[in-house]
């Protein structure tokens, strides 16, 4: 097939030997992988060094987070305020690694078609979120976000959230068995608080609705600022 006669040493040493070639390829990709990943599993692993300062999501917040994941919110909204003047002015204090301690999966995002959401917790009242998910333009003139009317109608399933909590527990999130068993009543309790606040704004809904869970999650976002940052400001 070839007309050239020269035989380089590396042809016999390598390019004629498929097994060695494959082994060296895997070796080549292993160096960078190990150097970058192993420290992240050990010394830099927030979950392994958790101090208890950042608590896992409550059952209702977790239910809301599952909805956030399902709807692909991360494809238009980031959850990572970078340490830059324009960002801290626009969104609030920059994000710290500890704040993501119990985020499975992480939701940093890679695109801001809409604004960053990491400091959205507490920024607006519950009723704002309710109306905004129903029709974003009613709260935010000119918004290009889709309407999410089904979140106002669909209900979450308590047993489903217990399954989520169990999986998180097995993965290493410190939920106790008692907390998981008590999840259904805790869901109602947390939900009723939000339903009560919505009622003050003349919105009638029930605590089992997906929108209630999503509001719980959004209001939790970014409220776990480490104390030194919370005190010292930016």
């Amino acid at each position: 097939m070839s007309n050239h006669t020269e035989e380089h040493w590396h042809r016999r040493a390598l390019e004629h030997r498929s097994t060695l070639f494959a082994v060296l390829t895997v070796f080549g990709i292993s160096i960078g992988s190990l150097v970058e990943l192993v420290p992240m599993f050990t010394v830099e692993n927030a979950a392994a060094h958790a101090t208890g300062e950042v608590q896992p999501y409550t059952p209702l917040e977790l239910a809301g987070r599952d909805i956030y994941l399902r709807e692909g919110c991360y494809l238009c909204h980031s959850q990572m305020v970078r340490p830059m003047r324009a960002e801290t002015l626009r969104y609030g204090t920059w994000s710290r690694a500890e704040e993501y301690t119990w985020d499975r999966p992480f939701q940093l995002g890679s695109r801001r078609i809409g604004p960053d959401l990491h400091r959205v917790g507490g920024k607006y009242p519950d009723a704002w979120h309710y109306e905004h998910m129903k029709d974003p333009r009613s709260m935010s003139t000119g918004s290009v976000m889709p309407n999410y009317p089904w979140l106002l109608e669909w209900s979450y399933d308590a047993a489903d959230i217990q399954a989520s909590m169990k999986a998180h527990q097995r993965a290493g999130t410190p939920y106790t068995d008692d907390e998981i068993a008590a999840a259904p009543s805790k869901l109602t309790e947390e939900g009723e608080a939000i339903v009560g606040r919505l009622a003050e704004a003349n919105i009638t809904t029930t605590s089992d609705k997906e929108i209630v869970a999503l509001i719980a999650y959004l209001q939790r976002l970014g409220t776990d600022r480490p104390k030194d940052v919370a005190k010292g400001g930016e």
């Binding site: 992240m40 979950a47 301690t101 985020d103 499975r104 992480f106």
Partner: peptide, 14 residues
Amino acid sequence: RSYPIYTGMTDALV
């Protein structure tokens, strides 16, 4: 549905 064995920034880097 499943949840990663990694959390937060570790999950992000992986």
